[in-house]
Nucleic acid binder design. Structure first.
Length: 417
DNA sequence: ATGTCC
């Protein structure tokens, strides 16, 4: 490890199948052994070249969350999971932070769990979504699904108003058009029932087996459809929220963190040199694929990494100067703080020490709107790891430059009881 | 994560 620029941060290990496992995690970070077991187990699947665990790595349903997997020839839909296309959209509002009146805004955020009043099909067409893409998907009720367009969903999804807390790189920050007085809206949502229906359909016929060759086409088409649907969903959510608070704004970035995509030819060449002892040249005619489950890409511009709903979020710029760091990191970054406690544990641990009122306060003088009691406890900041440690691990690994830090003003989860 | 499992 002496010649590694990441030592001793990066625990790198070559498995029996020749694949590399990398952990972008420092000693001061904490992670569950289950998550590491899942990371190693998954990296042993046929065709795997590289598995990367980010500082927000935590156990999932068989495979870890906060991980990137690069394979050759093989695509594993279950590694992307059911929320295909889930991601973060960041919007710059035309309301300065000092004019953001919490009580007034909160009162205006109503009806946002209900179906959007505009026709979903017209909306989809408006955003250049090819409605014929739904053909042959075998999903029973597309209309019911499209009625979810513009709604946030459950789990860790949210829409959050934030203000600027700190600027680290004023040049890059100003290039986004933001100022220190700006208010932003961060939208975290995905493909709702669509991705789930696609994965279920796939699992019914193929289970957890990989797809190779032309058998990939059907899934990839559906996957790409879900990614686009999710992106449009975030777009409409943002527009709904802006319209509800009578503000204007525009999108700064939209980054998908659950997907499978082909590596660029440059990235494939980098992987061949990274995995040289595997003598990949023979197999290199096959496409390499990157599965992202709760990790953001490093080749799509700036990335927003949110903490919990009671902590800062960070706008970061993936570093481009260290090719080795980029390929070792699976062309990916952590996508958030990562869970510390399982959903099922969170309520039991917090019930006796925290009231609903406590958890509705975000610790920054702002609020979380979450009328679903169980969800409020499951998603409490205490159930998440410290975002500052996650960010510092990525920094120390040479993967990011910090651009700015944001503070939560008001988070919307759901008004449904 | 989920037009969510009982």
């Amino acid at each position: 490890m002496g010649n590694s620029p990441f030592s001793p941060l990066r625990a790198s290990q070559k498995l029996n199948n020749g694949a590399l496992v990398n952990l972008v995690i420092s000693e001061k970070n904490w992670l569950e052994t289950t998550a590491v077991d899942q990371l190693i187990h998954t990296t042993q699947l046929p065709g795997m070249l590289l598995g990367v665990g980010m500082p927000d790595l935590h156990p999932g349903k068989g495979q870890p969350i906060g991980a990137a997997f690069i394979s050759q020839e093989h695509i594993y839909p279950h590694l992307v999971g059911s929320d295909i296309g889930c991601g973060m959209g960041l919007w710059h509002l035309d309301v300065p932070a000092h004019k953001f009146k919490m009580d007034k805004i909160e009162k205006r955020l109503v009806g946002l769990d209900e179906p959007y009043e505009e026709s979903p099909n017209e909306l989809l067409e408006q955003y250049d979504f090819d409605l014929s893409a739904f053909d042959r998907m075998g999903i029973e009720n597309i209309d019911a699904l499209n009625n979810k367009l513009g709604t946030i969903g459950g789990g860790n999804h949210f829409a959050e108003f934030q203000s600027v807390a700190k600027i680290f790189d004023s040049d890059v920050f100003e290039q986004t058009g933001l100022t220190k007085r700006s208010t932003v809206l961060l939208v975290h949502s995905g493909s709702r029932g669509l991705g789930q229906a696609i994965l279920h359909q796939h699992m019914n016929s193929h289970g957890a087996n990989s797809l190779t060759g032309s058998t990939q086409n059907g899934y990839l088409h559906q996957h790409d459809t879900a990614v686009k649907w999710a992106e449009i969903n975030r777009y409409i959510i943002a527009r709904r929220f802006l319209s509800a608070i009578k503000a204007g704004g525009h999108s700064i970035l939209d980054i998908t963190h659950n997907s499978v995509t082909a590596l660029s030819s440059q990235q494939q060449n980098d992987m061949i040199s990274l995995c040289a002892p595997l003598s990949l040249t023979e197999k290199s005619k096959h496409t390499m694929w990157i599965h992202r489950k709760g990790v953001s890409p490093t080749d799509q511009g700036l990335v927003m990494i949110p903490g919990s709903r009671g902590s800062h979020s960070y706008l970061v710029k993936p570093k481009t100067d260290n090719k080795n760091a980029i390929s070792h990191g699976g062309y990916s970054l952590a996508h958030g703080a990562g869970r510390k406690w399982q959903r099922s544990d969170a309520k039991g641990k917090l019930r006796n020490n925290f009231t609903v009122k406590d958890l509705e306060n975000n610790g920054f003088g702002g609020r979380v709107i979450c009328k679903q009691r169980d969800l409020l406890f499951e998603e409490a900041p205490q159930a998440y790891k410290n975002i500052d440690v996650v960010i510092s691990d990525l920094q120390q690994a040479g993967m990011i430059d910090l651009i700015a830090q944001f503070k939560p003003l008001l988070t919307y989860k759901t008004r449904k009881k």
